[in-house]
Computed example of a mutant assay.
Amino acid sequence: MPLYIEDRLRWIREMRQKSPCKRCGLLYNHHIKAKCPDCGTLDSHELRELLAQKEVIIGDLRRMGWIFAALALGCTLLFFW
């Protein structure tokens, strides 16, 4: 089996063991750690900052997705028109 398929299967197994944190929504393996490693030691102010940073990252990824979709559509129309 090629290496990238093995890596992908390993990643899928790891992701199945993770669940979202009730406090911040990020994934962590609750079987290994009792507290979320991302927000377990944060107070309420720091948690708000973490969640705001998470929303900024999600917004940036969403914009990047729209840009790539528009570029793909533009290239498709340009080459096949």
Rank of each mutant, 00 (worst) to 15 (best):
D38I: 03
D38R: 06
D38Y: 09
D38A: 07
D38M: 03
C39M: 01
C39Y: 05
C39N: 02
C39W: 04
C39K: 02
C39G: 01
G40H: 07
G40T: 04
G40P: 04
G40A: 03
G40V: 05
G40K: 03
T41C: 00
T41V: 04
T41S: 07
T41D: 09
T41W: 06
T41R: 06
L42E: 00
L42T: 02
D43Q: 02
D43A: 02
S44Q: 05
S44W: 01
S44L: 01
S44V: 02
S44A: 03
H45Y: 09
H45M: 04
H45I: 12
E46T: 00
E46H: 10
E46A: 13
L47N: 04
L47G: 05
L47H: 07
L47I: 04
L47V: 00
L47Y: 08
E49S: 08
E49V: 01
E49D: 11
E49N: 09
E49W: 07
E49M: 07
L50S: 05
L50N: 04
L50Q: 06
L50V: 06
L51I: 12
L51W: 02
L51T: 05
A52L: 05
A52W: 00
A52V: 02
A52T: 05
A52Q: 06
A52F: 01
Q53M: 08
Q53I: 01
Q53L: 08
K54A: 06
K54G: 01
K54I: 03
E55W: 00
E55P: 00
E55T: 07
E55M: 03
V56M: 10
V56N: 07
V56Y: 08
V56P: 00
I57V: 13
I57M: 08
I57N: 08
I57T: 10
I57A: 11
I57G: 01
I58H: 05
I58N: 04
I58Y: 06
I58L: 07
G59K: 00
G59T: 06
G59D: 04
D60E: 14
D60R: 09
D60M: 11
D60H: 11
D60A: 11
L61G: 03
L61D: 08
L61E: 11
L61I: 05
L61Y: 14
R62W: 13
R62F: 13
R62T: 12
R62A: 14
R62G: 04
R62I: 08
R62D: 11
R62E: 12
R63F: 06
R63H: 08
M64R: 15
G65T: 15
W66G: 13
W66M: 14
W66I: 09
W66A: 12
I67H: 14
I67N: 12
I67R: 15
I67K: 15
I67F: 14
F68G: 12
F68W: 13
F68N: 15
F68V: 15
F68R: 15
A69L: 15
A69W: 02
A69G: 12
A69V: 13
A69F: 05
A69Q: 14
A69K: 13
A70G: 13
A70P: 08
A70C: 12
L71M: 14
L71K: 14
L71S: 10
A72S: 09
A72D: 12
A72I: 14
A72H: 05
A72G: 13
